[in-house]
Design a binder for these strands. Sequence first.
DNA 1: GATTTTTATAGACGATCGGTCTAATATTTT
DNA 2: AAAATATTAGACCGATCGTCTATAAAAATC
Lengths: 210, 210
Amino acid sequence: MSSATPLKRRRGRPPKDQAGFSQTKAELIRSGMEVLTEKGYSATGIDEILRRVGVPKGSFYHYFKNKDAFGSELISNYAKFFEHKLDRSLGNRSLPPLKRLSAFMQDAIDGMARHQFKRGCLVGNLGQEMGALPESFRRQLIEVFETWQQRLEACLEEAKAAGDISSDTDCKQSAYLFWTGWEGAVLRAKLERTPNALQSYADFFINSLK
Amino acid sequence: MSSATPLKRRRGRPPKDQAGFSQTKAELIRSGMEVLTEKGYSATGIDEILRRVGVPKGSFYHYFKNKDAFGSELISNYAKFFEHKLDRSLGNRSLPPLKRLSAFMQDAIDGMARHQFKRGCLVGNLGQEMGALPESFRRQLIEVFETWQQRLEACLEEAKAAGDISSDTDCKQSAYLFWTGWEGAVLRAKLERTPNALQSYADFFINSLK
DNA sequence: GATTTTTATAGACGATCGGTCTAATATTTT
DNA sequence: AAAATATTAGACCGATCGTCTATAAAAATC
């Protein structure tokens, strides 16, 4: 909970110490991420995002052209964050490939648990909402999936090379399937507010590789 | 497309032929189903649902207490519709169990294709939106999943009895996993506007049973 | 068959909220 | 000190939700 900061904001041009970095913008992005992963895009008003961090509307429209542009930045931000996470986990050479995947999933489960399974995946949320979203989001979201898929594909190739999974596994296809099903599991975990779907899917997928 | 019906509606008490059945109410539900499977709950306004079928607001609030009650009825309606569909397909004794499942999936793929993959699954859509929905929807949605799961579980048990799948398969667990992953595939098909995710998942799941 | 009751349509209305835009303010730059 | 720039402040407009009253037409009642 990072609610209502009653902090009085200084108006006017800020001191020139922090080059290019804006505290306020960062707060808006974090706040937006929290709300959107929980409620999605359409159901979330800008006011709510602002209220949480005590930022007035003017600031929002200073940093972002409009809600759509904000959403787009959130996706980029989320993608970058996740990419690093995947590089660290799935690319962690100190663990055998499949263990890395299991560790990633367990990590995600713990993460969702920390928020009582109320927050889902931004990409999944927006994907489902596509019908009501600006068309430009589509390519962006598809590309995020592709990036994730590549990371996993590489990891699975390592597993194959190590003989941990069948040599005739189509790693690309498996990686594609993984993320497809994973999003389903996240959705259901959110609905049921339990780790069950995630846990089951984790076991299932790992098993399907053998 | 069942857009703007300029049809002039008869006011007043309707003729007493149709016991309990209301044409208007049915139209509202169908219209709502179309829009909600495409855009979700929060992104959809009542006005849009009404405009599509040329029904004035007064009628809406005559048939439904409010938007939430309407949404709840939509879920029930969808659940009932789907239940019958599952009974027909998964319970079709003239086909071997696994073929029934494949047929069901192919049918769903065709269905989504007919709408250019713009419409998803109502349950999946609302599930993802839970964070912004009335809490009462949660139980309703969970129960729908359970119903679907039971239907599939029974079908898988038949497959097991027939020796089509391994005798140590946990059919309940498999059925749970199926729907979890399936929702993920529907989501992704909607995002990518192609049958690819559905097709891949169909093959994958069937294969995982053997 | 005239009156009352019931069922349904019609749409105006107010409150609220989301998104945009202009004004005000405080720093930097010149 | 003046001009330019970066940021905050919040007024404003339009849309949306849900209510409420008026109207209409059929059924029920007597």
